[in-house]
Design a protein around this nucleic acid. Structure first.
Lengths: 204, 204
DNA sequence: CCTACCGATCGGTAGG
DNA sequence: CCTACCGATCGGTAGG
């Protein structure tokens, strides 16, 4: 029926599948994502969907990688060229809040990264490993600027960067819960207030 | 084959099913819980399991209610008789950390309440409503002692109880992630340090 | 990228 | 609480 497609068309189809997978998994989880649902949404056959990935697990990993790419593009890249240290860190944290506030068209069920973190936190396998690796990578990004900020005297000298990083991640998880589960309109402002307090230069 | 059981035996069987459901759902989520798996674990038939609840959704709600009861028993009740305000709040927060650190035999995949919060945060229905209600109830418990603590002068007068409650919940979510996904042995100590800073009486 | 399958498992029901 | 089913859906394969 459908003629065989060119490589460029195949790539576009693959992108459509991954984009739709990210949206579905954001709501239903990466396990709630099924080939049948995906095929129906995209008006394709299940075999046509699966052909691009081979297995469902490979599709789940592709969706997670795409979510990570979106996150990097929206949260990290806009701040990448700012001066390392407190300046860049504050910008990243601001983009981070914006991302949770506004990326609802891409992630109708909230940050896929957070959903997947909880979904696979206790289930060994490639998805657990991938989620864990991405989470550690992101914490290292924060830690780098935190350490620089302390070295620059932009944060109090007795600041423990690991401790502050832990607290920043907690704020973000709480923001995601308040937006998604509670639909609390004040949560972004609360997060910004907490960030201001945590990321304030020492008195001099 | 099996003779009909007495009401007391039926109650015991129901408790066994719910207990096993909590453990499975802690790892695989309330949707990952299946009647077939449950029946195999308990060496019963699927119909025997389902007979106690009628539908899978009723079983999921029962597992969630049990998780909430466990949480209340381990986190709230040990502190219930302490003086309202900062004293009781600090005790509750300490039991809260202990609970995440040590309840791994009951919740092998971490606090079921947190897992369910993320699983159903964007999916309307009775489970979403139940998770949301329980989360709001718990936040109100924290808020009560926070408000009392400010009124008693045990926290700085300019403290916003809602803001502090938001930050406490974030810490807890971060602790769950650090324990489950990252297996970070320092996370409980970090949480206690952050709690100390957040719940310190004003200088006088 | 499709049609046409496969065995396994899903939640749930009938009837005892 | 069991056996014996039901239709629907799962991930995946064969073959084109």
């Amino acid at each position: 029926m459908s003629p065989r497609k060119s490589a460029a068309e195949a790539r576009r189809t693959r992108e459509r599948i991954v984009g739709r997978s990210v949206a579905i998994a954001s709501v239903d989880g990466l396990d709630g994502l099924t080939l049948g649902r995906l095929a129906a949404d995209l008006e394709m056959s299940k075999a046509g969907v699966l052909g691009h990935f081979g297995t469902k697990e490979a599709l789940q990993l592709a969706a997670l990688a795409e979510a990570s790419a979106i996150y990097t593009r929206l949260v990290w890249e806009p701040a990448a060229d700012l001066p390392p240290g407190l300046t860049r860190l504050r910008a990243v944290c601001e983009y981070w809040v914006d991302y949770l506030e506004t990326a609802r068209d891409i992630f109708p069920g909230g940050c896929l990264f957070t959903t997947a973190s909880v979904e696979f936190d206790a289930r060994p396998g490639p998805l657990h490993d991938a989620v864990r690796r991405l989470q550690l990578r992101w914490r290292r990004v924060l830690l780098t600027d935190l350490t620089t900020a302390v070295a620059n005297g932009e944060l109090p000298a007795d600041t423990d960067p690991e401790q502050l990083c832990f607290e920043l991640v907690g704020l973000y998880l709480g923001l995601n819960q308040s937006i998604q589960l509670l639909a609390d309109p004040h949560a972004p402002a609360r997060t910004r207030r907490a960030l201001d307090r945590l990321l304030t230069p020492p008195p001099r």
